[in-house]
């Protein structure tokens, strides 16, 4: 990789370019079979990733199927203006931000805490068992998890309401209450994903030199102190990177789950930008308008990612680039 980039970085020398061309052709010819192996994947991303990227320009046009992506009439920022001034805009933005920011703040630390605890377990067997149980829900489909919520929290026969009634409370219609949407969404998210996210932190923890713990123990540090002064600083780079990545995905995470958790009654809190894109675009066929909203969403995302990456780099933490 390094030789190749150094070759590329010196294009000015006149003699090099002819050699370059020659080498290039020779290399290409010798390893054509490798390119054949690579071809399907490259075709795939060109068709299913780069073509849609090219198609995203319809956000600035009035998309017309017969004219195609680039042939449709140009309207500039019209769709963006329409969205920003629409009456749903504020509610969508607030819902999206609240759900994702709350989700991040509450759900992000859970796998770290679990990893710190599991890492301290002495019995290998119990450790394995705990890990397996904790990450088993990540194999269950989102549809089933939401279905489980519907069943377990059902006002009529749900076990949760059974328990509430047993203890003298009134049954709550969880799936129909806007104020319960966020807790249920975030709670089920932790239930399903915390165990799996934990694995990465556990890996980072096992990479910490055991001699540090040994020395700290000799010096009389207890488990709390060792976690605070050895474990947490040790996995801080991983935490930072994953946090930045989570920020970058702030507006994307779990939109499919939001969509299927929506009921007519919880829409005041559960309608987020991306579910709105889905409805306006695919159900009402307002392609350009919803593409503009989607693009708006991605831009905020990218801006957040870059801001936090910059902050992390300035703070001397590890960063993505």
């Amino acid at each position: 990789m390094s030789t190749e980039s150094s070759v590329k970085s010196r294009p000015r020398r006149p003699t090099r370019s002819s050699i370059d061309l020659h080498t290039r052709l020779r290399l290409l010819a010798r390893s054509w079979q490798l390119y054949v192996l690579l071809l399907p994947a490259v075709l795939y991303i060109l068709v299913f990733k780069y073509w849609p990227m090219y198609g995203a320009q319809i956000a600035f046009r009035n998309y017309n199927p017969s004219d195609g992506f680039a042939g449709s009439p140009w309207v500039g920022l019209e769709h963006f203006e329409r969205f920003v001034t629409s009456f749903q805009f504020e509610r969508l933005l607030v819902n999206t931000l609240t759900l994702n920011a709350l989700g991040l703040l509450i759900a992000f630390p859970v796998p770290i805490i679990l990893a710190l605890i599991v890492n301290q377990l002495q019995s290998e067997r119990f450790k394995k068992f705990t890990q397996t149980v904790l990450y088993s829900p990540s194999f269950i489909s989102v549809v089933v998890v939401v279905g489980m919520i519907h069943l377990l929290f059902s006002p009529r026969s749900g076990i949760v309401n059974n328990a509430i009634v047993t203890f003298g409370g009134d049954p709550i219609f969880f799936m129909g209450a806007p104020e319960w949407f966020r807790p249920l969404y975030i709670g089920s998210d932790i239930w399903q994903n915390a165990g799996f996210s934990m694995i990465v932190y556990l890996a980072a923890l096992t990479a910490i030199d055991p001699a540090l713990h040994e020395a700290a123990r000799v010096d009389g540090a207890n488990k709390w102190q060792r976690i605070r002064h050895i474990d947490i600083p040790g996995i801080m780079p991983v935490i930072t990177i994953l946090f930045i990545l989570a920020i970058g995905n702030l507006f994307n995470l779990g939109f499919e789950k939001v969509l299927i958790m929506q009921t007519d009654l919880n829409l005041p809190t559960s309608e987020v930008i991306q579910t709105y894109v889905y409805k306006a675009g695919l159900q009402q066929a307002q392609f350009s308008y919803s593409a503009a909203i989607g693009l708006f969403n991605s831009l905020i995302n990218l801006a957040l990612l870059m801001t936090f990456n910059w902050v992390a780099r300035r703070a001397g933490q590890s960063s993505l680039w």
């Binding site: 990789m1 490259v42 780069y50 849609p52 675009g281 392609f287």
Partner: peptide, 25 residues
């Protein structure tokens, strides 16, 4: 030859995508 270029081609798609509507179209 071109390994870095191809790698970059793939990695870019992790951060930028065309969005739901363009994908559907």
């Amino acid at each position: 030859y071109g390994r870095t270029f191809f790698m970059l081609l793939f990695i870019i798609t992790m951060f930028i995508d065309g969005g739901l509507i363009a994908r559907y179209l």
